[in-house]
Nucleic acid binder design. Structure first.
Lengths: 123, 123, 123, 123
DNA sequence: GTGGTCTAGACCACG
DNA sequence: GTGGTCTAGACCACT
């Protein structure tokens, strides 16, 4: 489901949140898919259940999953709008970075180069 | 010299570091310019001197300033290489974000749009 | 873990940094080993926790350890490259001292003698 | 006489001490040579006379110069022993560094290489 | 419990 | 006056 890297400086709950959100936004987990229960995922990852609980709460707050009492947690069915929102955020970040780069003297050519091209895996 | 935003989630010392580094990298503070003393800036910003001290220590570690006991802190020369390094970092970040955006289905047109154009201030 | 010498003119936090870095570089602390918590080591050495905190921050900056909020501090893997870098630094220092010694009239024989021989502990 | 580098992290008085000691030990200033008065050197270097005063006091303490009241300061006539002592110190430092390098896995060949060879200017 | 940030106040070395 | 170190004690985020 998700991999935890203990050397990652990010808190564990955040790694869980990001991992599941990523799967959902990329479509790897279709709408209404049930995700593991808190206890189950906690066991799987050898992590304190409180940590998973917190991650799920955050995912629900973000609208990525919804909880059905007594039945479990499920991927939200409105992933499209979440994806759009996320893209907006990324766009804003890129815009801010580009502005800062220009301030420091970056050329337009450099900027376009950093963006990479489709097919190339820049990350 | 620098503005502190208490709503900013970043720690205060980091805001100070980024603020002064920005001024230095943009060339607003020429080489060997003396920057405010620890105590003075602390008073100006109504911040504990230790916090400023920590910020200045980080700036010295980064090579942005150099400190001399009993004399004060000064902008380093060789800002050029720091600027180049910083631009590389920004480039890598933009590349990573662009890659992630493509994964989520962003079009090349969107990406170019986010980059903005010279003169436009996207942030 | 580390010994503090109050007659040593070096600041305490630096003695802690050097002590732990030494253990890590020599391989006495394998990768991913957890080191004492800030508070625990502070108590052990009868030192203020802030001082230990500062030492650990420096160690993290140097890549000797990595920290995870709420979990603790751990020895970094990739100690090998740190060791190589450290050896380069020592080599440069020795070279500089040797040059200075020659300026003051040291003979090549003296220099070789100072270097000592394997097995002999010169310090 | 001596050059002050304001970017040098060493305190100014130490730069003066080291500079003059260096000249004396290398023989550039023969025994009993008169060195500039406190005021004169202070003016020359645009430095606070107190700072020069402190440097001269340290030089006298080290036996590099001697003060003749009312007549000025002069290079000591027993430079030879000072030089020998200084070489001993350097030797000890090199020995310590070599020991540490061995602990980190340096080979004897590396050590000899760092020492450099006569004629080569390693510093 | 863990690490990280901040404040307050003290002391030292340097100019 | 300057920067640098240390202590004491508080608060926050994370597990």
């Amino acid at each position: 489901m998700v991999k935890i890297d203990y050397r990652d400086p990010r808190p564990i709950y955040e790694q869980v949140v990001d991992g599941i959100e990523d799967l959902a936004l990329r479509g790897a987990l279709p709408a209404d898919t049930q995700i593991p229960s808190v206890r189950q995922l906690a066991m799987e990852l050898s992590i304190n259940p409180n940590t998973i609980q917190r991650a799920y709460a955050e995912l629900e707050r973000r609208g990525v999953i919804y909880a059905a009492k007594g039945r479990g947690n499920f991927i939200s069915d409105d992933i499209a709008s979440l994806r759009a929102r996320r893209l907006d955020e990324i766009g804003a970040e890129i815009g801010a970075l580009a502005g800062r780069a220009r301030t420091l003297g970056a050329t337009e050519e450099q900027l376009r180069g950093w963006l990479g091209t489709k097919g190339e895996d820049r990350e």
